[in-house]
């Protein structure tokens, strides 16, 4: 009799526990995601094999490395430089060009998670050409990084980080696709809300905040020279997280479209912090260098552990919680 009672008690605990378990599934721009963690553009993403690695590592969605109209070799090495609280990179948009990308990504059936495209150009009409080409493939969304801090002719270095340029580029791209358009901005800039509002008004479906900050510089004092071949590069890693949290918090109060928060995220607790600031999804990139390609899975487990302990059951409950 005692054993039967114990058995029932165990069953009860099991069912009760299962009902209470938090879930990480969410939707973003009408796309279902098994978790809110997205492989950031520029990390891996040169080809499908690279992206599959992030999928195996547990990413909820993956983003390709930005493609341009022409093949680009990018900057000379060193392309990355480390410091105590993060990393600088200046790859200079190396990519095989749109023609090769269209071949490589023509069949996305090997992916169980959504694949997001990304493209870069120097002006609105080239952006529109790229979006028109990418629109024909099975990408779940297209990201426009108008914010790279280290490539001449692209992003901040060609003046794309203004409300006017953002409006012009997003409007030109909006005409070429019905897919969700994500506009990636740079939290280094003053007045990011105005840029995000311009993107929203021009038809963007979400804001990705942020690109790498800066640019910054690391000098190796023993050789007296900057480490990066391009001398300056975008800053990522732990150091930029508080700036990204603040930027996402500010944007959440100003814009209606959802936000992908990105920058300095390497643990599940960081993801939760950014969700509370107002992000609907969270990008991960540099943290792969610290925790391996399964950093997504590790973050998910940490999130589930924290949510269980604190009684949260869904991602939606956490989004914007810091504003209440």
């Amino acid at each position: 009799m005692k054993e039967v009672a114990l058995c029932f008690l165990n069953l009860f605990i099991f069912i009760f526990g299962w009902v209470l378990l938090p879930v990480l599934e969410t939707t973003f721009c009408n796309v279902s995601l098994k978790n809110p963690l997205i492989l950031a553009s520029g990390i891996l993403g040169l080809n499908k094999n690279n992206l599959l690695r992030a999928q195996r590592g547990g990413a909820g969605a993956v983003t390709i490395k930005s493609v341009s109209l022409e093949e680009r070799s990018g900057h000379e090495t060193p392309n990355i430089a480390f410091f105590e609280a993060g990393m600088l990179n200046a790859f200079g948009y190396c990519n095989p060009g749109i023609e090769e990308a269209l071949k490589e990504f023509s069949d996305l059936s090997c992916f169980e998670v959504p694949v997001i495209a990304s493209c870069t150009a120097s002006n609105a009409s080239d952006f529109a050409k790229l979006v028109e080409a990418l629109d024909k493939l099975d990408f779940a969304a297209i990201e426009l990084p108008l914010s790279c801090p280290h490539t001449p002719g692209h992003g901040l270095l060609v003046g794309q980080g203004t409300p006017e340029a953002t409006k012009e580029i997003v409007e030109a791209c909006r005409k070429k696709t019905k897919k969700p358009l994500l506009v990636k901005i740079n939290a280094s800039l003053p007045g990011i809300a105005e840029i995000a509002l311009a993107a929203e008004k021009a038809g963007a479906n979400a804001i990705t905040c942020s690109n790498t900050l800066g640019p910054g510089m690391v000098i190796d004092i023993n050789s007296t020279k900057p480490v990066l071949a391009f001398k300056v590069g975008g800053v990522s890693g732990h150091a930029i997280r508080p700036i990204v949290v603040r930027s996402v918090y500010d944007l959440y109060e100003r814009i209606k479209i959802p936000i992908i928060g990105l920058g300095g995220i390497s643990r599940g607790e960081h993801v939760i912090e950014l969700l509370m600031a107002g992000a609907s999804c969270v990008g991960i990139g540099t943290a792969i260098a610290l925790r391996g390609h399964n950093v997504f899975e590790k973050c998910c487990n940490e999130m589930l552990g924290w949510m269980k302990k604190h009684g949260y059951k869904s991602i939606e409950e956490l989004i914007g919680l810091a504003h209440e």
Partner: peptide, 17 residues
């Protein structure tokens, strides 16, 4: 090879970096 820390994906050989 570019980054050497598994970020850039440049040195891929099939599924391996």
């Amino acid at each position: 090879m570019k980054c050497a820390v598994g970020l850039c994906g440049q040195c891929c050989l099939d599924e391996w970096l």
